[in-house]
Design a protein around this nucleic acid. Structure first.
Lengths: 205, 205
DNA sequence: ATATTAAAGTTTACAATATCAACATCTTGC
DNA sequence: GCAAGATGTTGATATTGTAAACTTTAATAT
């Protein structure tokens, strides 16, 4: 049978709601994300989501968590697929980050916009993102040992890289870069330049 | 007389509403920004704002515009106050940008969050921010001529700097940096390192 | 198997919001 | 002065978040 008659119980409504939430954000932006619209898209009553999420913030948090998981998975996969050179691996996971951010702008927005949650919830974010940060620190240390990056506190270097990458991605996703630069360069060219700049700034001369 | 009796006509309700909007954002975050709350704080009826702003987006746009103006003013003032050295001037206006962003997080959020507006309005943003960008380009060109920055397209360099600065400020304002770094460094130290890194990456060896 | 219970959905209801329309009051150009 | 427009107010409607009470289905103990 292809389409089972819509059972009273959806089967996996939770996933369906998360999926719908992403689509809504893609279609209408983060402020179009409304519990009722999500329920509508999932084909259930407006109060059904409350059986799976405490409130709107909880839904958003779940989307964020799923986003971090997907990003982490992607990064790990690309890292594993890279050669044995640690620098290649580091570069691969960094590229995976960028690729995720620009390929799933809906996810990235929710994950980092910070304006969607009422107030709480920021703490549970920390938990999710800390692991990736730790990984980055050890990667950076390795690059230092290999004489590629300047000696120094990897934490500071990590923040510098994250700032640049996050800033670039945020501006790009908000369409602010193409406005300024025009059509003279492709986004890829701009991205390459920006990344090269920050790495140049951290590399040994 | 100290407090004049509240006249039927407020006098300058528009400014009062913009002011109130900022306070709301400061107090409760951007998603606490509601027309009615703003009206409440200004001491007028819930529909009064509609005499000055077409809708919520229009109010937000006005806040954004005012923010850009204030930032621009600050940058120009600090630039003028700097010495005659063009590099000093450029540095001063850049610092003013950073200072504004971290001193008025409410303004900065609304100006760059992009998640607040329903959909339109992004175009009117362009107008406001383009002037500052042009200024930055000529400043960068000057630095190139002085042999401080590498020769090349100033547009790319500008995007690199903006990415780093915007990323750092966004992360800092969302409290994401102190979470990661802990108390080991002051925000000032981190900021100095990050800025030095991107400039190092663009400078002549 | 069946009765009981928990889980998952639904409907109803309420408060807050954006926004519109109709009305009231102040200001101002003549 | 006074008509007109600008500025505020009140009231109404549609949409939202969310709680409560009720229904249907799935699970589980006996």
């Amino acid at each position: 049978m292809t389409a089972a008659k819509p059972a009273y119980h959806h089967g996996d409504l939770r996933s369906a709601l998360l999926q719908a939430a992403l689509e809504v954000i893609d279609d209408t932006g983060p402020q179009g994300l409304t519990i009722r619209e999500v329920a509508r898209r999932a084909g259930v009553s407006h109060a059904a989501p409350y059986r799976h999420f405490a409130d709107k913030d909880d839904l958003i948090l779940a989307v964020v968590e799923q986003g971090f998981e997907l990003m982490h998975t992607n990064m790990m996969a690309d890292k594993a697929a890279a050669g044995p050179d640690p620098l290649d691996q580091f570069s691969a996971s960094g590229m995976a980050y960028l690729h995720f951010a620009m390929h799933y702008p809906a996810y990235y927005r929710v994950m980092f916009s910070g304006d969607l949650l009422s107030s709480s919830g920021q703490d549970s974010l920390r938990h999710t993102s800390t692991a990736a940060f730790e990984q980055m620190l050890t990667d950076l240390k390795l690059c230092q040992r290999m004489g590629i990056l300047r000696e120094g506190d990897t934490m500071l270097q990590a923040v510098a890289i994250l700032s640049t990458v996050h800033g670039f991605v945020s501006l790009a996703n908000d369409n602010r870069i193409s406005h300024l630069v025009g059509a003279e360069y492709s986004m890829q060219e701009i991205q390459d330049f920006v990344l090269a700049a920050i790495f140049q700034g951290l590399a040994v001369q």
